[in-house]
């Protein structure tokens, strides 16, 4: 007779430096660790499955989706997971209160053709959200630009309206913002938190001399000092928020990152609201792409985790968004999610924030009265299933997390598979998540 409980096809396991066994399942997002004594039983179950659940260890494996009943069709589970994202009670809007920016970053890909959101678009967006709210369970707004804090009055106006609409219909609401941090004063942060903006992405590309070379003001002039003062002042607040300090690195700045991490430790270690995220600079479509000293893929894939480890060694947590990306659906790009749209300052609607000029990305228009016109032929290109059409993605252990849709733009442009950084180095990623999770408790 065969075994009744089989190992899931969505499992990965690895060992920590201290010899613990880590087991991850991408369909449930579970990560379990096992000591020496428990490992033989777990490894046997991961290899061939078991006849029936008996011990507490196998009970945990079953409850975590690491073992599944032999009759379960996991391909069907993955397919249903993708289908279940096509729902109308969720909404994610990426809103551009302005498309202008005060920075002139060397690697920026945006062309900044427009300034602040027009009064007509503001009125239309309020109407659209108010109408939609009655059908929603959850809503999420991402404030984006340009530099969104060049137009705080528009964020305020829209937030006030959204908060009223969502309160009226009891919609669970959260918001985040991608800002360069230049205007993120203590007073501004206090206001933003009141408007339910609790997740912040602020970029520092190295110590002052390095950062200012990469991310100076548009008319010239440094920005590091002012951002750093803002972050230090943010620490003095009692409010609940997370600030992801993003560090973009390239070949020239690899050796400067440790100095920045050391500086961050001096001022932020021990305050878990301040978290680190490392990403390689890319040729993202800007005018200076040819001159950018970008790292090779091999170097980038190594350094992301090396720097994250360096952060942990300096008591600086890894950004929670890394761990969240390993949850089911967590690595699917917003551009591929059917309930997500980008709203430009003039009411132009997009799916992707990295290719505003691309014709296929002009998916619709928001009208002054709140009506939305969508070109569903273009829309479909972004939200179609990547894992159903790509047999390699279909058979991959990471399928539930990314659904083959980590970056639909990359697949549309190149025809190639867009694997995430976490998936490329999954064992290192798991060990780093484990380090991060057990750091406080050790």
């Amino acid at each position: 007779m065969g075994n009744n409980l089989m190992p899931s096809r969505f499992n990965v396991h690895t060992y920590t430096d201290s010899g613990e066994l880590l087991v991850y399942n991408s369909y449930t997002g579970a990560i379990l660790s096992f000591s020496d004594g428990e490992q033989p039983e777990v490894l046997a179950a991961l290899k061939d499955g078991i006849v029936a659940q008996g011990s507490s260890v196998t009970a945990h494996l079953l409850a975590s989706g690491i073992l599944v009943p032999a009759h379960v069709d996991e391909f069907m589970r993955a397919k249903l997971l993708y289908q279940s994202s096509h729902r109308t009670d969720l909404m994610h809007l990426i809103v551009m209160p302005t498309e202008a920016c005060n920075f002139g970053c060397t690697y920026c890909y945006q062309t900044f053709p427009r300034g602040k959101m027009t009064p007509q678009t503001i009125a239309g967006l309020k109407q659209f959200v108010d109408h939609k709210a009655r059908f929603l369970q959850s809503a999420s707004i991402s404030w984006f630009g340009g530099e969104p804090l060049l137009a705080p009055e528009i964020i305020e106006q829209l937030s006030d309206s959204f908060l009223q609409s969502f309160a009226r219909y009891d919609v669970d609401y959260s918001a985040d913002i991608a800002t360069n941090g230049y205007y993120l004063t203590k007073e501004m942060l206090t206001k933003l938190v009141k408007w339910k903006i609790t997740r912040y992405m602020v970029t520092l590309d190295g110590p002052a001399i390095v950062h200012d070379r990469k991310r100076g003001l548009r008319g010239g002039g440094g920005t590091f000092e002012r951002i750093f003062v803002n972050l230090k002042n943010a620490r003095l607040l009692d409010e609940q928020f997370e600030i992801y300090i993003r560090v973009n690195f390239d070949e020239e700045t690899l050796s400067d990152v440790p100095e920045l991490v050391h500086m961050l430790k001096e001022h932020f270690a021990g305050d878990e609201r301040f978290q680190l995220l490392f990403r390689p600079v890319g040729r993202w479509g800007g005018p200076h792409d040819d001159q950018l000293p970008i790292c090779s893929d091999r170097t980038a894939n190594l350094k992301i985790w090396e720097f994250a480890q360096l952060g942990l060694d300096h008591d600086m947590p890894m950004a929670s968004i890394v761990e969240n990306s390993m949850m089911p659906g967590g690595s699917v790009c917003y551009a591929a999610k059917p309930y997500s749209l980008v709203v430009g300052a003039n009411g132009q609607l997009y799916k992707c924030t990295c290719a505003f000029e691309e014709e296929d990305n002009h998916v619709g228009r928001l009208h002054d009265d709140g009506r939305v016109d969508l070109d569903y032929d273009k829309f479909a290109k972004w939200v179609s299933s990547g894992d159903d059409t790509d047999p390699v993605c279909g058979a991959c252990y990471y399928r539930p997390a990314c659904q083959g849709n980590h970056c639909p733009l990359f697949r549309m442009r190149t025809g190639n598979r867009p694997c995430s950084f976490e998936k490329r180095k999954i064992r290192t990623a798991l060990e780093t998540v484990w380090q991060d999770a057990t750091r406080v408790r050790r």
Binding site: T28, A30, I31, M327, P328
Partner: peptide
């Protein structure tokens, strides 16, 4: 055994 991250019920949640 330690639970580093709890499982979620996924459907109906470079």
């Amino acid at each position: 055994m330690k639970v580093i991250r709890k499982p979620v019920s996924p459907i109906g949640a470079a």
